[in-house]
Simulated assay, not measured.
Amino acid sequence: MTDNVNSVKIARRTSYHHGTLRDALIEAARAVLEERGPDAFSLREAARRAGVSPAAPGHHFGDARGLLTALATVTSRSFGDALEQADVGCDRIARLRAQGIAYVRFALAHRPAFDLIWRRGLVDAEDAELKAANQRAFLILDRVVRGEDAAGASPCEADAAASLAAWAMVHGFAQLALSGVFGAGEGAAERAVDALLPAVLDRLAL
């Protein structure tokens, strides 16, 4: 009987290589974040869901802030990917509309993790990898505002203020959508994005 119990315990243990454990902890952190929100995040719970000891996250991330910073970095990279994938075609205004919609839709699809990117009290904003991921996302938007093509050529004279204005407008729209301003019913926020955001962006003097 004792042998059987021990075999069950061993079977429940999860074996990870160094890299896969790090990824598993980040995904476990994402699950905890989605369920509990950032302010109730638990490092111990993330370890439990990854099937490792409570001390294991410390070897990779140091503490809860380190793990949340890693999750914010991964999320920011995916966010940048979504913006880049939306940047197609040659028409500058159409590119900006498409990228704005991609921005807000990403926020809606990844609410807790997207929110985490901007929570300076919960993540290390000076972390080099997080800063690089956030900068990349901004530069993808900046590229569209300036009208740059894939080769970096820009026929426009838009300055940094124009890019900041576009960012503020799209991010503000995302926050309104996340807050339920456009309706709490299923798909209401997404419909508002498609119907209203292009018209809002057209107000920019670009």
Rank of each mutant, 00 (worst) to 15 (best):
190 E>C: 01
195 A>Q: 08
130 L>I: 09
12 R>V: 11
188 A>T: 03
36 R>N: 15
125 A>V: 14
192 A>L: 07
126 E>H: 08
21 L>E: 15
84 E>D: 13
7 S>F: 12
50 A>W: 00
37 G>C: 11
186 E>N: 04
37 G>S: 11
129 E>W: 02
152 G>F: 04
116 L>Y: 05
13 R>D: 15
98 A>H: 08
187 G>P: 04
78 S>P: 00
105 R>V: 13
108 L>G: 07
31 A>W: 03
17 H>I: 11
11 A>V: 07
102 A>N: 05
120 R>D: 15
87 D>V: 02
156 C>E: 13
49 R>I: 13
22 R>P: 00
61 F>T: 05
123 V>W: 05
1 M>K: 02
174 A>Q: 04
1 M>H: 09
131 K>G: 14
9 K>R: 12
82 A>K: 02
183 G>A: 09
42 S>G: 07
72 A>L: 06
69 T>Q: 06
134 N>T: 12
104 V>H: 00
94 A>Y: 03
96 L>S: 08
115 D>F: 00
41 F>T: 05
23 D>Y: 02
110 H>M: 11
20 T>A: 13
184 A>T: 13
127 D>M: 05
41 F>V: 14
131 K>C: 14
91 D>K: 02
202 D>T: 07
111 R>C: 08
190 E>I: 03
163 S>P: 12
184 A>N: 10
48 R>W: 02
146 R>F: 03
144 V>A: 11
100 G>Y: 00
95 R>D: 15
103 Y>P: 00
172 G>V: 05
17 H>P: 10
165 A>D: 14
170 V>W: 00
52 V>K: 04
201 L>F: 06
5 V>Q: 10
205 A>S: 11
73 T>D: 13
204 L>A: 10
59 H>P: 00
62 G>C: 12
135 Q>K: 08
177 A>N: 03
23 D>I: 06
99 Q>C: 10
60 H>A: 15
132 A>Q: 11
167 W>S: 11
28 A>H: 05
168 A>M: 06
16 Y>P: 06
158 A>H: 02
22 R>D: 09
125 A>G: 14
52 V>R: 02
21 L>Y: 03
139 L>V: 11
59 H>L: 14
160 A>P: 01
114 F>W: 11
157 E>F: 01
57 P>Y: 01
116 L>Q: 07
198 P>M: 10
7 S>D: 15
88 V>C: 12
70 A>G: 12
33 L>H: 06
110 H>C: 08
10 I>R: 10
166 A>S: 09
110 H>W: 04
55 A>T: 07
197 L>V: 06
160 A>S: 13
100 G>I: 00
3 D>K: 04
134 N>A: 14
151 A>M: 10
27 E>D: 15
109 A>K: 04
96 L>D: 09
2 T>A: 14
92 R>M: 15
43 L>F: 06
159 D>P: 00
192 A>D: 09
92 R>F: 06
78 S>R: 08
203 R>L: 15
72 A>E: 01
175 Q>P: 00
155 P>I: 10
113 A>W: 02
195 A>N: 10
203 R>T: 15
24 A>I: 07
149 D>K: 01
168 A>Y: 02
50 A>E: 00
152 G>E: 02
104 V>P: 01
142 D>H: 04
41 F>Y: 04
112 P>Q: 05
18 H>L: 13
169 M>E: 01
37 G>F: 04
8 V>G: 02
71 L>I: 10
156 C>D: 11
189 A>K: 01
175 Q>G: 06
82 A>Y: 03
103 Y>V: 08
135 Q>F: 08
